[in-house]
Design a protein around this nucleic acid. Structure first.
Lengths: 290, 290
DNA sequence: CAGCGCGTGAAAACATTTTTCCAAACCGCA
DNA sequence: TGCGGTTTGGAAAAATGTTTTCACGCGCTG
């Protein structure tokens, strides 16, 4: 063969859009546990993925194999090539990219950041902050800086779905005084401030604190000065080999908070969530999967 | 099992003295090309070693297997263990939180997602997409859906910093036709579409594709239908134990793209970047660390 | 050199796997 | 709600793989 045969993984990617729902179910099962989930007989493999044998048979044909045995052989070849291959895959999330490829350097940095962030996370603080976020007696204000505005937006979109009384303070600091005017003791202010800490944000934090607002601050490993007026501060590791900072760990923390908040107030908010879900269902074109 | 199962290699050595001539012939053939020479069907394996099928069948029974299929399975297991062994060792980001704490469950899910996303990433596609993103001859349009709007915003903020001619198509789809009007062949459209794929986005993609715009699609593991008109599609794993989907891996991919784009066109954009940096410096209050 | 026993593989019998076919379920759509 | 196309899995048919049987050949032994 002149071309290097594409891996089964690649074949799945390539044909994924042409696969039916059950076929995807199998594809996912295979990708999740690759390639082990494809090494047994078609009967067993199908049973593991909870689809029927014909489904698997049809799918491997879609991938371009003449039949299941061919597919099976292809997987074996890959496995074997990997074992006898030049270097044992590196322990991390090496993509197939070459050693020094940006993707791999990047993956390394992200791993480190997430690891650091997690191990420096005080889960009791986390739980308290979550309780605060789930408390719907006060309003919840969300605000971010130049870069973190997107995160604040993301937070807003989700919190809005799971609780009432949420406000996104737009990035134009000119409008902030209006919001502050309405803040009351018992309200919560979720702030994002990573380096180039912004003066405006600090002023806002001070004003809010004076009014008795509880501040939850998500910042970087060097900690924004807002820390001093915040109830709860969370530090996220953000360094990557680049001129700017990564917000993946920030995002991770945020999502964890959203998930926890939702779990916290699930009984009360479930109905709300389902109603919203239905509203979207009414306009959607494509079905959500199982 | 209490004892670690002995490898087939060991079994052969152990029983070697009890093997007949033809059986040894097969044993040697297997050891010479281990374990590949034992992975096919008994018929083929026997033919390769130039012995008869019964010989192989008898021998594997001598080794202690009930039949050829069991022997075959054992070889597979070994192979698989070899491959997944060192790789599988996942970093444990466990915070100090208790075992079943949401933080730990969440960390687990995120690890899996990032791992999956990375290993399914086609780095050649990635490089091509990056080259497209770095190409400033055409405009770069960025757009997202209901949830991914925040990501599109994040992308916009960064791309705007590193290159010229970037447009963020606001989330209100009513304004999209105006943008499409101005699109030209050679332009690039960076789209985010994760499930509950949105009809509007698909229409937009189709219109843009018709005008010769290159589409880079960032979607989830189930692939938005936009795939069919996109130049480059990237799948991000998004499942977490929650009613909604995680966008951490999406964010990771996005950041990797931004980093790569910046690296790609660094010489041309460095000056631009520094100038912007200075502008921010002029208004900031707190010093950037290190 | 006849007789015995073991090793071997052809071929038959058997078991399993794979494929094909088809009817039922499902889905989007009018 | 009913229609038309697609998807799905049960079951039978076909193919393939595995095991067993058995007869032949070889070499050793008395």
């Amino acid at each position: 063969m002149s071309k290097p045969a594409p891996s089964v993984r690649e074949l799945i990617r390539e044909h994924y859009s042409a696969l039916t729902q059950s076929e995807r179910k199998f594809a996912n099962s295979l990708l999740e546990n690759y390639p082990a989930a494809g090494l047994a007989s078609i009967t067993i493999v199908a049973a593991n993925a909870e689809v029927s044998t014909p489904t698997v048979a049809r799918m491997v044909q879609k991938l371009g194999f003449k039949g299941y045995p061919q597919f099976h052989q292809a997987l074996l070849k890959e496995l074997e090539a990997q074992v006898s291959g030049p270097t044992q895959r590196r322990e991390n999330w090496a993509s197939e990219a070459p050693e020094g490829h940006l993707l791999n350097r990047f993956a390394q940095a992200v791993t480190d950041n997430l690891g650091q962030t997690f191990s420096n996370l005080d889960y009791e603080q986390f739980d308290m902050a979550v309780r605060q976020l789930a408390n719907t007696e006060g309003r919840l204000y969300v605000v971010g800086g130049r870069i973190t505005r997107a995160l604040a937006d993301y937070a807003f979109t989700h919190f809005q779905a799971i609780r009432q009384r949420v406000t996104h303070m737009t990035s134009s600091s000119a409008t902030w005084p209006h919001y502050v005017l309405d803040m009351e003791a018992g309200d919560t202010l979720l702030m994002f401030d990573v380096r180039r800490y912004e003066t405006n944000l600090q002023r806002l934090a001070e004003l809010a604190a004076e009014r008795g607002v509880k501040i939850i601050l998500i910042t970087d490993q060097w900690a924004s000065p807002i820390t001093s007026v915040a109830q709860h501060t969370f530090n996220c590791w953000v360094e990557i080999p680049s001129a700017w900072d990564s917000n993946i760990s920030t995002m991770m923390l945020l999502e964890a908070m959203i998930a926890a908040t939702q779990e916290e107030g699930w009984d009360e908010t479930r109905e709300r969530y389902e109603r919203l879900d239905e509203l979207f269902d009414m306009t959607r074109l494509f079905r959500k999967f199982s």
